[in-house]
Design a binder for these strands. Sequence first.
DNA 1: TAATAATCGAGACGGTACGTCCGGTCTTAAA
DNA 2: TTTAAGACCGGACGTACCGTCTCGATTATTA
Lengths: 206, 206, 206, 206
Amino acid sequence: MHSRSPARLGRPRSTAAATAILAATREALVEVGWSKLTLGDVATRAGVAKTTLYRRWSGKNELVVDAVAELFDELELPDRGSLAADIEGVVLQFAAILDRPEARSGLMAVVAESTRDDALRERIRESIVERQKRLVVQGRSRAQKRGELPAETDPGEAARTADLIFDVVAGAVVHRTLVSAEPVDAEWVRSFAGLLLYGLAGDAPV
Amino acid sequence: MHSRSPARLGRPRSTAAATAILAATREALVEVGWSKLTLGDVATRAGVAKTTLYRRWSGKNELVVDAVAELFDELELPDRGSLAADIEGVVLQFAAILDRPEARSGLMAVVAESTRDDALRERIRESIVERQKRLVVQGRSRAQKRGELPAETDPGEAARTADLIFDVVAGAVVHRTLVSAEPVDAEWVRSFAGLLLYGLAGDAPV
Amino acid sequence: MHSRSPARLGRPRSTAAATAILAATREALVEVGWSKLTLGDVATRAGVAKTTLYRRWSGKNELVVDAVAELFDELELPDRGSLAADIEGVVLQFAAILDRPEARSGLMAVVAESTRDDALRERIRESIVERQKRLVVQGRSRAQKRGELPAETDPGEAARTADLIFDVVAGAVVHRTLVSAEPVDAEWVRSFAGLLLYGLAGDAPV
Amino acid sequence: MHSRSPARLGRPRSTAAATAILAATREALVEVGWSKLTLGDVATRAGVAKTTLYRRWSGKNELVVDAVAELFDELELPDRGSLAADIEGVVLQFAAILDRPEARSGLMAVVAESTRDDALRERIRESIVERQKRLVVQGRSRAQKRGELPAETDPGEAARTADLIFDVVAGAVVHRTLVSAEPVDAEWVRSFAGLLLYGLAGDAPV
DNA sequence: TAATAATCGAGACGGTACGTCCGGTCTTAAA
DNA sequence: TTTAAGACCGGACGTACCGTCTCGATTATTA
């Protein structure tokens, strides 16, 4: 019982091509931005024919999602000793990625496109959103072990809260960076972590 | 002898044209979305020549910003008796606007474009961001009068906090709607308001 | 009652463009031949956008027919005093045109294409064939006035004979030039005129 | 132990492949014509890989010449008793071949191509022109035996005359069929044979 | 009331990119 | 070494929009 393909015919696809294309895509995003990025130019930069590119990706959006998704796989959550410090750490990492022009330019564009393209939205969710939601789960369980947060009782409620936190954190950082166009610096991060932990009405510790 | 408007010569611009163009733009956003919207099509829908359109807007982005900005002027902050209720009210209004396809499709697209176009970013900030930030200020002062929030001492600090709150609220709603692609319903809004008021570590009242 | 168009709207088509395009087509036929002629290259040579070219011609074949047809309008039938001399004269003129690379390369190609395209065949017939058949009619009437040929009685028969002569003359010259690839020189022309006048079995005068 | 063909190594070429490819070429000529004929399609029709095709023919033109040349080998010159009848017979046969779409479409196209490709012209001459010129020689010698034509004295002159007749006959039929696009029927053939034998000025027998 | 001047709809213009198709070559595994 | 399969690079296709321009026709103000 072979699970894999039964001795595929013909010349196999070049793995180098895919790598070169994604790298060329990011390079082009940096230099010309999303709206002026053309697949012909990407192919040229990658030293590849347009045909080769279209054989693997159906269009600009799909290509950019894959090119950008790789950037977010760098995110990690090293244990910094407290929930506040962990939040600050991951927010700064996230902001650093959003500071790179290949991410700024591409990310919002594909999100915009996804509002009219269900397959694209699903691709974004799989490639980017769900993959990074792990950080929330990991941070919470670590805080629970430290006794900073109470243990979950209802697993459904736990999932909903994780989603909420993810939307708040990611949304705030994206909005600050791209819409308000203000820097996510240490000071802002500290304020944000305080708000997230203790709320508007809460008593933030000195 | 008029001091203002140096008595322009020639046939004056048709005011009906501008109105028709903006309406046609929103109509096209609904039907075909941002990326397939063409200025030629908008002109045709508005019953106007392309020349007329270009005489008033320099391109697609500027046109869409103006067409979308009008949507957000509907937002209001009726007094619902408590800070929590006020937050829930405005978030639901905001979510309702983001549910309209002309806003979904256009808003993120121009934000994406603005990452490489300072003039466009400034236009977005003026037309949309700053104009809605009034809601935060208004809500906070109302909560202070009610005694739900302490009075501000440092005005700089007050402004920074208002910006933070705006990014958190707007970012979370946008992210939930467009990226996570989940509904902003009454339940989510209640959870979000709770988080915003009392934080992760805080004790939300029953 | 105006017979012409009722005040046409919009910018009128540039007459210079059509001229430049046809000239560029002939230039390209000379340099690269029919099969390597591309409409993009023709447009570039003519200093014209591809759109402009496609607005006037539906494709390569139609364009080449028009470009080549103009060459044949040079043909004339000066009175050389006898039927034999008139035939020799026009055959030499025809051969001279077929010697030009823009004609060689293009003419047979569009004829080949016309075997599968009725509209194209009709266009060739109108633009080239029928327009040159006048030479046969003119030459015959002149020979009749000279008494070299008997007057026609049946007009239908006259037309059929004119067609026959045209096919024989044009066909022989084209075949000699393009298929046999031999020169149509004075000697061959004299032999051909002799054959045409007196036949295989006839007694050509010394 | 073969003396010739230095014992080629490896798998021998499939003889069936060449036959299938030529047949597939004619089939494709019938269905899509010369200009839309693609070598990939021919290979598929022949159940053969493109590599196999390119190993035997250098391109489309060479392939089509070979595929079309076979059609003309059917031509014969049965003795019909008189020169006029022999001419009429062979002209009708030739016209029948030119009526087949695989010949119409392909023949003129390769002739057109040959105006810029000497090797191709030579290939056409060898494969088609010279091979059919035998019919002229055969017909003339038969007519001389019958006493319809005088015997040749100068062999050079004889060859030149044979070439002339071939160009006139083939040219007229091709022009009538493909350019004038009129049928080569019995009536036309009789008129043509009359013209060829007795000329314009000659006295055709009743 | 006439001249002036900027607007209007219409549509052609030079460009750029699209996504597809085909030509001809190369790289596999199998025969 | 040939075969079928199919990926590869390159280049042209015909189309769609871009943003500009040139028309004749309107519609105001100013003289």
